[in-house]
Design a protein around this nucleic acid. Structure first.
Lengths: 310, 310
DNA sequence: CTGAAAGCGCTTACAG
DNA sequence: CTGAAAGCGCTTACAG
């Protein structure tokens, strides 16, 4: 609200002395900090970095700073990061950690908008970005069925994870749909990690009638399973087909390259950040719960079972 | 400065209403934000996450929030993140990006303390945390020499990287020390990535007298090289020994497990954050340039050359 | 030992 | 169209 000349003169002077407005003072006045707090369990899994890149990209695009807190899935760290967030007053929070939706309201309600990523608790009031884990797991399993497999095993994720439960459910769906009886001996509990895949593969192949195909709860598990299968003298996919889930970077350069379900991780990140910033900007969200599509990536770790040829 | 009773009464009341001091107001008054801005090129490389974990750990320990900016090594993003940092007023900056020490002073001097990690530019006024890349590369190369190798190749890192140059230098040092003439045909330019390892391995094995051992500038390169060597029908380490650098997670579960130089990545993170927070706290640093020790990790990708047996 | 005042650097009504 | 004032919620001297 000032004449063009004055405006220009001021802007020129500001540029000359390299004036940068003090965001702290602005924040105190406007009650907004132009920053987002992101809580995630860890960066050890190769799954998260690409999501972070998406978050970073969208935040940068709109001039927001991103604060990061690694909870390591520990209760203590989770709540101390929530406290830190409460003090730092970010304009919003993004949670990639199973149980934090509860924590947000634990020590007094957390008033900033929050978006839940991937682990959607039912009836959560917060916007969320997820994929349809159940349907995607059914797609993976169906792929094995269509190749002609009947003895299809599943290495599950961690007990506590609802994502793991959904993928298990999708596996059961596809089996039922194909009229294949689910065999409890073919469902073993992994941990979403390498090591789980290694141990579970041993266990499965020790069965009286071992599986001809394994649907692994994620790619790391699948890579671990392949490692062990090779050690045991089986070849993949000739003896055993393996399909993973996630499509992490190394799955494409694995030997053999891994057939898997791709999650659009970068898009998950950008969608979550966009949803949050739109909420902050006061936009009415047309669709507060976003479900992103996945894709079956066919590579070389799956093939028809030997029995078909003999 | 208040009587014990009053103090207690106030604290009790504060706890009851769940009072959390408003850091923004405090920041405006004290001119400090209790936050650190971390600039890093990307999270795509499996090398960084563990460093971030170290940074996060040390920041959390001292109640600081950590802001993250991914520059993707792009000039535009680098300077826009510097501007963001200038506005957000973090108490300090940590830079894991080659060229940013310059940028700090580009658009008017950046007054906050900064710590440079891994890529130390000579004569930089900022505290730094690095390893001795040159000496470490010599250790790696010497290991191959001691196994009896004479035709030892080196796949270099990116042209622009001073780390790559230092590792190359260390390789030359060890060769000279062993009285082995450096052969330009055995030094090829990679890019610190998988793909570079793949291409360079092809190139090296096409030589009239191919190498019996390869020192790769990092583990990703080494893993790519092994992949290609296997495709070409060579076995590792029987036909060609491979040694990497970094000791990323997957190197231990590779086939064959990779012999490499371990960088203490978590400690690099904690050391950098500690150095920065000490500087902010006004401590006189006894040692502003920290060099952390590395370790030769012997696994199964290196062995004496065949010639010794025949 | 306690209370009242000033001021950090902005933004936003409000008065001229 | 422009300028002066109030106030965001703290901390830190300073006066009582």
């Amino acid at each position: 609200m000032v004449s063009p000349d004055t405006r220009e003169a001021v802007q020129k002077a500001a540029a000359e002395v390299g004036y940068q407005p003090n965001l702290i003072a602005r924040s105190l006045r406007t009650q907004s900090t132009n920053s987002i707090f992101v809580l995630l369990p860890s960066l050890e899994s190769p799954f998260y970095p690409e999501i972070i890149r998406g978050l970073d990209w969208a935040a940068h695009e709109r001039g927001y700073a991103m604060m990061l807190g690694l909870t390591g899935n520990e209760k203590g760290r989770q709540s101390s990061y929530i406290d830190l967030a409460r003090r730092q007053r970010p304009d919003g929070v993004i949670v990639l950690d199973c149980e934090l939706t509860h924590l947000l309201g634990a020590n007094g309600p957390f008033q900033a908008p929050a978006v839940q990523v991937l682990e959607k608790s039912d009836g959560s009031p917060h916007p969320s970005v997820t994929i349809d884990d159940r349907a995607a797991a059914a797609v993976a399993t169906r792929h094995l069925v269509e190749l002609g497999h009947r003895r299809i095993a599943h290495i599950l994720g961690m007990e506590a994870s609802t994502v793991a439960a959904l993928r298990h459910q999708g596996y059961l769906d596809a089996l039922a749909e194909a009229g294949i009886a689910a065999d409890p001996a073919l469902m073993v509990r992994g941990n979403f990690q390498h090591e789980g895949g290694i141990n579970c593969a041993s266990q499965l192949m020790a069965e009286a009638t071992p599986p001809t195909a394994i649907f692994c709860a994620n790619d790391e598990t699948a890579i671990g399973a392949i490692l062990r299968l090779k050690q045991l003298g089986y070849s993949v996919p000739q003896d055993v087909s393996i399909i993973g889930f996630d499509d992490i970077e190394r799955s494409a350069v694995q030997s053999p390259p891994l057939t898997t379900i791709r999650q659009p991780r970068f898009e998950i990140g950008t969608a979550a950040m966009t949803l949050l910033l739109d909420t902050i900007a006061g936009k009415i969200l047309r669709q507060p719960h976003v479900t992103l599509p996945v894709e079956l990536i066919l590579r070389s770790s799956t093939a028809p079972p030997r029995a078909q040829f003999s």
